[in-house]
Measured scan of single mutants.
Amino acid sequence: RKEMTAACTPRRRIINLTSVLSLQEEINEQGHEVLREMLHNHSFVGCVNPQWALAQHQTKLYLLNTTKLSEELFYQILIYDFANFGVLRLSEPAPLFDLAMLALDSPESGWTEEDGPKEGLAEYIVEFLKKKAEMLADYFSLEIDEEGNLIGLPLLIDNYVPPLEGLPIFILRLATEVNWDEEKECFESLSKECAMFYSIRKQYISEESTLSGQQSEVPGSIPNSWKWTVEHIVYKALRSHILPPKHFTEDGNILQLANLPDLYKVFERC
């Protein structure tokens, strides 16, 4: 597991931080080997919608929660590849102030007048994250320049770009939802926020969305749709870069829909 690298990086740093090793061990302890084997050997059937997909393993048909699986995938990559990410360069710098204002204007932020003026909160978020810029760049390849612009994001899987519609809320939550006081809790909560931002979430995906850094293989055609990215990038990574937690067998994120021999018997009677 320590050699797990989802995106190509030129050289690998050895990380011996106790906090990170502890988080890696927790993933191992909570892992479910049968689910790992199923995901490793599954045959992708198709997307139901951005949140759900169908896959077959041996004779069984499964309904998989793409949102939760991708979130767990990105969390584990962030923990196992800690401080070893490439950088996704933004085509132009994104001012943190503008991103924070967009987030505060969104109902998702939960902002009320009692929280104070949005401009003041946005300025605080910019200054707060600028103070964390060195650590964010060093460990997470999340790059913020001296003017308070976001200029780079971590490359977690080759050819995958997170849904940038979720970027404003991500920046807001970096400042408000991460435990910045304790090292282990900081790395864990920061990785979880980043994983949620990178995950496939239906509120940020339309039929026209593209999450891939590449064009489709047909010359002159439109960019790959999110469905292509889910199948050929995300579920491909799920084959080798995730140890599913045991609770996925109990919380409805992986559901067995049918045993195909039983279905064949039904059709034979028709």
Rank of each mutant, 00 (worst) to 15 (best):
R1H: 14
R1Y: 10
K2R: 10
E3W: 08
M4W: 12
M4G: 05
M4D: 07
M4P: 06
T5V: 05
A6N: 06
A7E: 11
A7N: 07
A7K: 04
C8R: 09
C8D: 12
P10M: 07
P10N: 08
R11Q: 07
R11Y: 10
R11P: 08
R12D: 11
I14V: 11
I14W: 11
I14M: 11
I15D: 04
N16V: 06
N16M: 10
L17K: 06
L17P: 04
L17F: 12
T18H: 12
S19M: 03
S19Q: 03
S19H: 05
S22W: 10
S22F: 15
L23N: 00
L23F: 04
L23C: 03
L23I: 13
Q24S: 05
Q24K: 07
E25S: 09
E26C: 11
I27F: 03
I27C: 14
E29S: 07
Q30D: 08
Q30G: 15
Q30P: 03
Q30I: 15
G31M: 06
H32L: 15
E33K: 08
L35W: 06
L35D: 04
L35I: 08
R36L: 08
E37S: 11
E37T: 10
E37K: 11
M38I: 13
L39D: 00
L39M: 07
H40S: 13
N41Y: 10
N41I: 04
N41R: 10
N41W: 06
H42N: 05
F44W: 07
F44N: 02
F44A: 00
V45L: 14
V45E: 04
V45W: 04
V45D: 01
V48P: 11
N49H: 04
N49S: 13
P50I: 11
Q51N: 06
Q51I: 05
W52T: 03
W52F: 13
W52S: 02
A55R: 01
A55K: 00
Q56I: 15
Q58V: 09
Q58N: 07
Q58A: 15
T59H: 10
T59Q: 15
T59S: 15
T59R: 15
K60E: 09
L61N: 05
L61H: 04
L61E: 02
Y62V: 08
L63T: 00
L63A: 05
L63V: 04
L64Y: 04
N65M: 01
N65L: 00
N65A: 00
T66S: 09
T66A: 02
T67D: 00
K68Y: 05
K68Q: 10
K68W: 03
K68M: 10
E71H: 11
E71P: 02
E72M: 06
E72H: 13
E72G: 03
Y75A: 03
Y75P: 00
Y75Q: 03
Y75N: 03
Q76A: 00
Q76N: 00
I77R: 13
I77A: 04
I77N: 03
I79M: 09
I79P: 00
Y80D: 08
F82P: 00
A83W: 04
A83H: 04
A83M: 06
N84I: 01
F85L: 15
F85A: 04
V87C: 14
R89W: 11
R89I: 15
L90D: 02
S91I: 12
S91T: 15
S91W: 08
E92L: 06
P93V: 12
A94Q: 14
P95S: 10
P95C: 13
L96T: 05
F97Y: 14
F97D: 06
F97S: 11
F97K: 08
D98G: 10
L99T: 06
M101A: 05
M101F: 05
A103N: 00
A103V: 03
D105G: 13
D105T: 11
S106A: 10
P107A: 10
P107C: 10
E108A: 14
E108Y: 12
S109L: 11
G110E: 12
G110L: 14
G110F: 12
W111R: 07
T112F: 07
T112D: 09
E113I: 08
E113H: 11
E113C: 15
E114H: 11
E114C: 08
E114M: 09
G116M: 09
P117S: 14
P117T: 09
P117V: 07
K118D: 04
K118V: 06
L121S: 06
L121H: 11
A122E: 01
I125Q: 04
V126L: 09
V126Q: 07
E127F: 07
E127H: 14
E127V: 09
F128S: 06
F128R: 07
L129P: 01
L129N: 02
L129A: 01
K130Y: 09
K132P: 01
E134P: 10
E134G: 11
E134N: 07
M135V: 06
L136I: 05
D138I: 05
S141L: 03
L142T: 05
E143T: 08
I144Y: 01
I144C: 03
D145H: 03
E146N: 08
E146R: 08
E146T: 08
E147D: 12
G148A: 09
N149H: 13
L150H: 03
L150E: 01
L150N: 01
I151N: 13
G152D: 02
G152N: 06
G152R: 04
L153S: 01
P154F: 01
L155T: 13
L155I: 14
L155M: 11
L156Q: 00
L156D: 02
I157Y: 03
I157K: 02
I157V: 11
D158F: 06
N159A: 08
N159C: 10
N159G: 06
Y160V: 01
Y160N: 02
V161L: 10
P162Q: 00
P162L: 01
P162D: 01
P163I: 09
L164G: 04
E165S: 10
E165K: 12
G166H: 03
G166I: 01
L167C: 03
L167K: 00
L167Y: 02
L167Q: 00
L167D: 01
P168Q: 02
P168C: 04
P168F: 04
P168M: 02
P168G: 10
P168N: 04
F170R: 02
F170M: 04
I171D: 01
L172W: 10
R173N: 07
R173F: 01
R173M: 02
L174D: 00
L174E: 00
A175M: 15
T176C: 09
T176G: 05
T176D: 04
E177F: 09
N179A: 10
D181I: 12
E182S: 12
E183C: 03
E183N: 03
K184D: 05
E185C: 09
C186M: 07
C186T: 05
F187Q: 02
F187Y: 06
E188C: 14
S189W: 03
K192S: 06
K192D: 02
E193W: 03
E193A: 07
F197C: 02
Y198H: 04
I200K: 02
I200E: 01
R201M: 00
R201Y: 01
R201K: 08
Q203M: 11
Q203I: 12
I205P: 03
I205E: 04
I205R: 03
T210K: 08
S212A: 10
S212K: 10
G213E: 15
G213C: 14
G213F: 14
Q214R: 06
Q215M: 08
Q215T: 06
S216I: 11
E217G: 14
V218E: 15
P219G: 13
P219Q: 12
P219N: 11
P219Y: 09
G220C: 13
S221W: 09
I222H: 14
P223F: 11
N224F: 14
N224C: 12
N224R: 15
N224W: 09
S225Q: 09
S225R: 14
S225A: 12
W226H: 02
W228T: 07
W228Q: 08
T229P: 03
T229Y: 03
T229W: 03
V230F: 01
E231P: 02
H232M: 05
I233A: 10
V234N: 00
V234A: 01
Y235W: 03
Y235V: 00
K236G: 10
A237Y: 06
A237M: 12
R239A: 06
S240W: 07
H241P: 02
I242D: 01
I242K: 02
I242P: 01
L243D: 11
L243P: 01
P245D: 02
K246N: 12
K246Q: 13
K246F: 14
H247T: 14
F248W: 13
F248R: 00
F248C: 04
F248Q: 01
T249A: 14
T249Y: 09
E250Q: 08
G252N: 15
N253P: 10
N253S: 12
I254L: 04
I254W: 04
I254S: 02
Q256P: 11
N259K: 04
N259T: 10
N259C: 10
L260C: 08
L260F: 11
P261Q: 14
P261G: 14
D262V: 06
Y264E: 15
K265F: 06
K265C: 08
V266Q: 15
V266M: 14
V266G: 15
F267R: 15
F267C: 15
E268L: 04
R269H: 07
C270V: 14
C270T: 15
C270Y: 12
